[in-house]
């Protein structure tokens, strides 16, 4: 095996790991760094449950190799809350019952946060298309879309 050493930053923390180049960033986050919040629903970039940001860019961590993390800034669902304070999106997801089983929730949160950072006033259609790569099999998306709308409204009010 031609394992490689990688230095990266995950949720602001410096992290080093050694991995096989075939391992995805998702494999590395879960199995080597112990951050299991990102979920593997498909392994082929079709479900979005493993969504993270790499240098601020929303991606499926199953479509990124672990070795590509070298020198990057990775943000995962575990980094969304600030200490005990939940992000407004997290609050709204809970308040609006926008999760049933919750397996898609980490990916939805990472993706929706990324959207609201770019657009604090998305339309329903914009939210739905932005989240089209985040499959949810439980909710039918209704409550998820409402939670994102409510979070956007709060963020706008907070200025």
């Amino acid at each position: 095996m031609s394992n490689q050493a990688v230095s990266t930053t995950v949720n602001g923390d410096p992290v080093q790991f050694v991995c096989d180049p075939r391992e995805t960033l998702l494999d590395v986050l879960r199995d080597r760094i112990g951050l299991t919040g990102s979920k593997e629903g498909c392994g082929t970039g079709d479900c979005g449950a493993c969504s993270v940001t790499v240098d601020g860019r929303l991606v499926c961590s199953c479509l990124v190799l672990g070795v590509e993390a070298e020198g990057k800034k990775i943000e995962t669902v575990e980094g969304i809350a600030e200490g005990p304070n939940l992000h407004v999106l997290q609050e709204k997801i809970i308040e609006h019952a926008a999760l049933q089983c919750g397996i898609c929730t980490p990916g939805i949160l990472v993706a929706a946060k990324n959207l609201l950072e770019k657009n604090t006033n998305p339309t329903e259609t914009e939210i739905r298309y932005w989240l089209a790569g985040n499959l949810c099999r439980c909710t039918g998306y209704d409550k998820i879309v409402r939670a994102v709308q409510a979070a956007a409204e709060d963020l706008r009010k907070a200025g």
């Binding site: 970039g45 790499v54 479509l63 993706a111 990324n114 989240l131 790569g133």
Partner: peptide, 9 residues
């Protein structure tokens, strides 16, 4: 092509 996530790559 693909989702927002795929667009990132």
């Amino acid at each position: 092509i693909g989702s927002t996530q795929v667009q990132g790559r």
